[in-house]
């Protein structure tokens, strides 16, 4: 059986990654908007984002919109792949390969 990715296999980070996976490939979302979508505190979200960034799953870039600094968050290619693999593993756990059940 496949091991579940420990970085994603935590409720808070799974929610972060699932949310980011709903963005189109190549898109990033502003930190406050992500925070609002997830209803997390800024500190809590930062902690989880750092863990995801350390694993190479999330890309964080700092930029300026006019004069105000903005932090943008997006799923990296590696992160999207890891999320897809995790989702597949979960599906496999719930619905084991039918071939095994055949006599």
């Amino acid at each position: 059986m496949t091991e579940l990715d420990p970085v994603i296999h935590a409720q808070a980070r799974l929610r972060v990654v699932a949310s980011l996976s709903a963005l189109n490939v190549g898109d990033k979302i502003a930190f406050p908007r992500l925070q609002e979508l997830l209803a997390m505190t800024a500190g809590n979200l930062s902690v989880h984002l750092r863990k995801l960034e350390d694993a190479g799953y999330v890309e964080i870039s700092k930029t300026h919109r006019g004069r105000t600094p903005a932090t943008l968050v997006g799923l990296s290619r590696r992160g999207r792949l890891a999320f897809e693999e995790y989702t597949e593993a979960i599906h496999a756990l719930l619905d084991p390969a039918p071939s095994k059940e055949q006599p």
Binding site: A10, Q11, A12, R15, A18, S19, A39, I90, H91
Partner: peptide, 27 residues
């Protein structure tokens, strides 16, 4: 859901529900 919780989802069904709910809510 307990937001400070670093623990894994209770089981695979809960994990799948969490993924689907979060993705559709975001969309």
């Amino acid at each position: 859901v307990d937001l400070d919780d670093d623990s894994p989802p209770t089981d695979a069904a809960a994990a799948l529900r969490l993924i689907q709910d979060q993705r559709s809510a975001t969309a």
